[in-house]
Nucleic acid binder design. Structure first.
Lengths: 262, 262
DNA sequence: CGTCTTTTTGAATACTGTCAATTTAAGTGG
DNA sequence: CCACTTAAATTGACAGTATTCAAAAAGACG
């Protein structure tokens, strides 16, 4: 097979800081505020009025660096904060009875994690950074207090949770009624759309997750993921080299996503 | 195959009322109150303090009868109310691009539907009664106003939504990593547990949904559902005759539910 | 009682998982 | 910088499971 050459405009540069040799320090004293954040439109404050954004700023978020492979929160941890991804990519996963890992989501800049924790007061999944990342920690007690004062804040929380419910419904459809090609094309189109919304190229990107993680998320084996990538390549829909993907035929890929007759 | 005879303690009696021949009347003037409802513990008020239950009573719920096959709300309808099932069974489903129906949930007495509507202000699924049923309609504007006054009410909504997220996560695990036998045993055990919580027999019950609906929900074909029922019968785990199920070996059925190695 | 729907069952096919080997990339230490 | 080790991805062969197509049986309903 010919070696596919792709530009790599999105390779992250690992910044080796002093932190790497010091023992892990306490959360950094960063006090980011939402009104100045470049993710304003995508993240929590999206669609909020000025007054409510100021209320968000008053919640004393803290920002935390997470290195590739490190955990943001762990399944079973007492619920204290929700987390917004500021940079990098994070996966959430559940540990199954037999010790295997089931990936339940991938989160990009501006997306919120940890909404499944409110039911039981403990996190229902584990969040792990797939690359060096930054997350904003949103203390729930503060958010909850703010919601008492402002209906805008109440609706914010409710809308975010409802959005998560709808997201999971989409995944259920995918897992319930699609074959391997449909699953992978839906996955690639979803990635493309979300990267596009963040100002990256929708047609050429670098996947931050392994074949095994994609497979777990999509409910197929890593071998099937790999084979399906190759099949798309042969069909001229994409160019793929390891984790680098270039979508050649966006419409064709969308066509592969039509639900099968079942 | 031998005909399995089962008692049917749960056959519903169709009450034919005058309503059946009159044109559909406006929602009945029932003003049920939560504090007197026998579903108090299972439903919205579960775990609430006296004051908050009184606030629920003040929300002016209305109760509505729904006949088998009728729709409670439809995908795309503007979101005005959430619904609690008071009696009967309701399914929620989504219409796929190719016209097929994908079942996303089954709801019993005390369970809440319509939480997926808050994100977009429109219902994301259609709720259809599987048998004659009664639902309580909970106007969201009233609930929202009550939440302004009471943190207890705020937490109620948030907890309910989080619970729905966790429910869907469980379904994702099922769809993502289980084979047909594991799916059906998980389904039967879930039905058993929920019927048990409502005071019905956990070991013998009447399914209100068709094989096709079960299959859609579990992500397999109706033929596979039927075959798997027969297989469980042969294995001595259950007795099954059409929609009547008696669980013979609860532990054995739970054993069939262990996640496969994948 | 006949019609329609639902359920069951069979046979053949297609798809995906499993096992195994190879290739490629990435990381480590001399 | 290179050899070595480890991990990730690809590919092939085969087996197993679920789907598809088809037909028959059992209920439901007017």
């Amino acid at each position: 097979m010919s070696t596919t050459t792709l530009e790599r405009p999105d390779l992250s540069i690992r910044i080796i800081t002093i932190d790497a040799v010091r023992p892990a320090p306490a959360p950094q004293p960063f006090r980011p505020n939402c009104s100045a954040c470049h993710l304003r439109e995508l993240c929590l404050p999206g669609g909020m009025t000025g007054g409510d954004v100021e209320r968000l700023d008053a919640l004393l978020f803290s920002r935390r660096r997470v290195r590739a492979g490190q955990v943001v929160y762990r399944e079973g941890d007492r619920f204290e904060s929700m987390y917004a991804v500021r940079s990098g990519t994070v996966k959430t996963s559940l540990m199954l009875a037999d010790g295997r890992e089931q990936v339940s989501g991938f989160y990009m800049a501006g997306e919120l994690m940890g909404l499944d924790a409110l039911a039981e007061g403990a996190h229902a999944s584990t969040a792990t950074a797939l690359e060096d990342a930054e997350v904003c920690s949103i203390p729930y007690v503060h958010l909850s207090e703010a919601a008492v004062a402002s209906t805008g804040m109440q609706h914010l929380v409710v809308r975010l949770m409802s959005r998560e419910i709808v997201r999971e419904q989409g995944l259920m459809l995918l897992l319930g009624g699609m074959n391997a090609e449909e699953r992978l094309s839906a996955f690639l189109l979803d990635q493309s759309r979300r990267l596009d919304a963040r100002g990256y190229s929708p047609s050429e990107f670098h996947l931050r997750m392994s074949r095994a993680e994609i497979g777990s998320y999509l409910g197929v084996t890593l071998e099937t993921v790999s084979r399906t990538f190759s099949a798309f390549h042969r069909q001229g829909l994409i160019m793929v080299n390891q984790r680098h993907v270039r979508i050649i035929d966006m419409a064709g890929l969308a066509g592969a996503c039509v639900l099968r007759t079942h």
